[in-house]
């Protein structure tokens, strides 16, 4: 799954060292910023490799996940937008193609809404950020860890699913996963809603919404809601994919994204 030769890993210092951010980077071309999900898996996945054929793909780890520091400076959506502005400054990039998945999708939507000048195109993949009273999405944190894969994947027994986040007995990995859950809880605890619906109309970048048709974690109705709320957006649904279409159905995902980005 990981082809280490094609990407680099480094630490980027943001806002005079307030944040020390783990960053993976690969490929050449216009910058594409990828914002990760709750799992914050550090692999360099095939979809990233494919994107890296045409883009300089930059995948930072959000503060409070893995070894990235500085979560104490981020309390709310506004702070995430300020942080991502500072991160882009630190990377020396004016504007990007922005892609965010799940929790990262929520951050991407916030950035695109409040700092439209920094976002050329937006891709949201099975994103958090909204709450639909008529279709309550499952409580991510109250879902037993053993049940979660059945919501996340179309086929949780498939090889990609099994390899993605394997069980561990390593205390350090276990602590790292708990840290990710804890940090993510700041934005998703009980409801994945921190008021994005009041800001989402400000998104002006061309937007593609990609959604796995079998997503049990954030049901397809949420994709439809994003599509209804973002001016001029388009929704592409991916068959036989759950919450991670970019992992579970790479070809279909790339087909959807390539046309939009071209």
């Amino acid at each position: 799954m990981t082809t280490a030769t094609t990407h680099t890993e480094r630490t980027v210092s943001v806002r005079d060292g307030a944040f020390e951010i783990e960053v993976r980077e690969g490929g050449e071309g216009p910058p594409l910023l990828y914002l990760h999900n709750m799992m914050a898996e550090y692999g360099w996945f095939p979809f990233m490799e494919r994107l890296a054929e045409n883009y300089r793909v930059i995948a930072p780890i959000f503060p409070g996940f893995r070894e990235s520091s500085g979560l104490q400076y981020i309390d709310d959506p506004t702070d995430t937008v300020v942080y991502h502005n500072d991160l882009l400054d630190a990377l020396g990039i004016d504007s990007v193609t922005l892609m965010g998945h799940e929790l990262g999708g929520m951050f991407a939507a916030e950035l695109a809404a409040l700092s439209p000048h920094r976002v050329e195109k937006l891709v949201l993949i099975d994103a958090y950020g909204l709450w639909l009273e008529e279709v309550p999405c499952p409580d991510y944190f109250a879902t037993p860890r053993r049940t979660l894969p059945t919501l996340m994947w179309h086929d949780h027994m498939s090889e990609v699913a099994q390899e993605y986040n394997p069980p561990t007995r390593d205390p350090e990995i276990s602590i790292q996963r708990t840290r990710a859950q804890t940090s993510g809880s700041r934005f998703l605890w009980q409801f994945p809603d921190r008021g994005l619906d009041k800001r989402i109309h400000r998104i002006s970048a061309p937007t593609l919404i990609v959604w796995g048709e079998s997503d049990g974690q954030i049901p397809i109705e949420y994709g439809q809601a994003f599509n209804a709320l973002i001016p001029g957006s388009q929704l592409v649904t991916i068959p036989e994919a759950g919450n991670l279409p970019q992992i579970e159905q790479v070809d279909a995902f790339m087909d959807a994204v390539s046309g939009f980005l071209a």
Binding site: D139, A142, T143, P144, T178, Q181, T182, S185
Partner: peptide, 15 residues
């Protein structure tokens, strides 16, 4: 469905 929430205990305590 309601075990101890992740992050209820500090990392030092988990260790």
């Amino acid at each position: 469905y309601f075990p101890e929430a992740p992050g209820y205990r500090t990392e030092a305590s988990i260790r």
